[in-house]
Amino acid sequence: MHERTQAPWWRSKGGIALIGFALVAAFYVLREHYAHALGALPYLLLLACPLMHLFMHHGGHHGGAASGGRPDAPEGR
Score class of each variant (00 low, 15 high):
65 A>S: 15
2 H>Y: 12
15 G>W: 08
25 A>T: 07
40 A>P: 10
75 E>A: 03
14 G>V: 09
70 R>N: 11
3 E>I: 06
1 M>E: 12
63 G>V: 01
65 A>D: 01
1 M>Y: 11
14 G>P: 00
32 E>G: 02
45 L>M: 14
29 V>L: 12
36 H>E: 13
76 G>H: 14
53 H>T: 06
43 Y>A: 14
17 A>Q: 04
29 V>A: 08
25 A>L: 14
60 G>N: 08
52 M>S: 10
10 W>V: 01
43 Y>S: 06
76 G>Y: 15
10 W>P: 00
48 A>N: 02
16 I>T: 05
21 F>W: 01
22 A>Q: 06
14 G>C: 06
57 H>Q: 04
46 L>N: 05
56 M>E: 13
73 A>G: 11
53 H>F: 11
75 E>H: 10
76 G>L: 05
33 H>S: 11
72 D>Q: 02
35 A>D: 13
34 Y>E: 13
16 I>W: 02
45 L>V: 15
28 Y>Q: 06
12 S>I: 04
19 I>H: 03
57 H>F: 15
5 T>E: 14
42 P>D: 01
45 L>E: 03
31 R>Q: 12
43 Y>R: 09
64 G>H: 15
20 G>L: 10
54 L>K: 02
14 G>T: 10
50 P>V: 02
12 S>F: 03
11 R>I: 00
11 R>M: 05
9 W>K: 10
62 H>T: 07
43 Y>E: 08
6 Q>A: 15
21 F>Y: 01
51 L>H: 06
43 Y>C: 06
47 L>G: 11
52 M>H: 09
27 F>K: 02
66 A>I: 04
52 M>Y: 10
32 E>T: 00
3 E>K: 03
37 A>S: 10
12 S>M: 13
74 P>T: 02
30 L>V: 13
62 H>C: 05
9 W>N: 04
3 E>Y: 02
11 R>L: 04
63 G>R: 12
76 G>A: 08
34 Y>R: 11
12 S>W: 09
41 L>T: 03
64 G>W: 14
23 L>A: 13
27 F>T: 15
39 G>T: 09
75 E>W: 14
2 H>N: 08
69 G>D: 01
68 G>R: 10
34 Y>K: 11
49 C>N: 10
7 A>F: 09
40 A>K: 05
10 W>Q: 12
67 S>P: 01
41 L>V: 10
51 L>P: 01
42 P>S: 09
24 V>T: 12
7 A>E: 06
72 D>N: 04
68 G>E: 00
6 Q>N: 12
38 L>T: 13
46 L>Y: 14
47 L>R: 07
29 V>C: 15
